[in-house]
C-alpha cells in the first residue's frame, strides 16, 4: 500500500463522495489529503504542487464534473512533465465499455465504478501501488 506520507488529491463535485473517499483513505492510513470540487479547481492545485517540492503522489478523481471532466483533467496531468507517472484513479458511475477504453487510452492507472465500498477502494489502491512499485 502507499506509504502514509503520500500526498493525495481527491476531486469530486459532490462533497459527500469526497468525504467517503477521504474516510476510506484515512482507513488505509493516508492522512495527507487535499480536495477539489472540480477538475477545473484541481488542475491549478496540481500544477502548483508540481512546481513546489511537494507534488501530489496520487490522484483520485470523479469522471463527471461540470467544468472540467475527470478524463480531461487526467489528460492535462499526463501532458504535464511532472504528471506522466503520477498514479491516477478515475471514479465513475459511467461503466460503459467505451468510457473505460477512453480512460485507458488517456493513461489512467486504474478506475473504480460507483457504487463502491471502502474495501473496494482499498483493493484498487493496492493494485495501483503494486503496478507503480513494479515500475
Amino acid at each position: 500500500m502507499f506509504p502514509s506520507d503520500t500526498k493525495v488529491l481527491v476531486v469530486d463535485d459532490f462533497k459527500t463522495m469526497r468525504k467517503i473517499v477521504i474516510n476510506a483513505l484515512k482507513n488505509c492510513g493516508l492522512e495527507n489529503v487535499e480536495e477539489a470540487d472540480d477538475g477545473a479547481t484541481a488542475w491549478p492545485m496540481f500544477e502548483e504542487a508540481a512546481a513546489s517540492d511537494k507534488p501530489f503522489s496520487l490522484v483520485i478523481s470523479d469522471w463527471n464534473m461540470p467544468k472540467m471532466q475527470g478524463i480531461d483533467f487526467l489528460k492535462n496531468v499526463r501532458a504535464h512533465p511532472a504528471g506522466k507517472a503520477t498514479p491516477f484513479v478515475l471514479v465513475t458511475a459511467e461503466a460503459e465499455q467505451s468510457n473505460i477504453v477512453q480512460a485507458v487510452q488517456a493513461g489512467v492507472s486504474n478506475y473504480i465504478v460507483k457504487p463502491f465500498s471502502p474495501a473496494d477502494l482499498k483493493t484498487k489502491l493496492e493494485q495501483v501501488y503494486a503496478k507503480v512499485s513494479k515500475g
Binding site: 459532490f14 459527500t16 465513475t92 458511475a93 459511467e94 461503466a95 460503459e96 460507483k114 457504487p115
Partner: peptide, 23 residues
C-alpha cells in the same frame, strides 16, 4: 446541505447504474 448533496450523488450513481443496464 450535506444530506442534500448526498441524495444528489446517490441519485447520480443509481441513475448511472440503471442507465448502463437499460442501455
Amino acid at each position: 446541505e450535506d444530506v442534500k448533496d448526498a441524495i444528489m450523488e446517490l441519485t447520480n450513481v443509481i441513475f448511472g447504474n440503471a442507465k448502463r443496464d437499460l442501455n
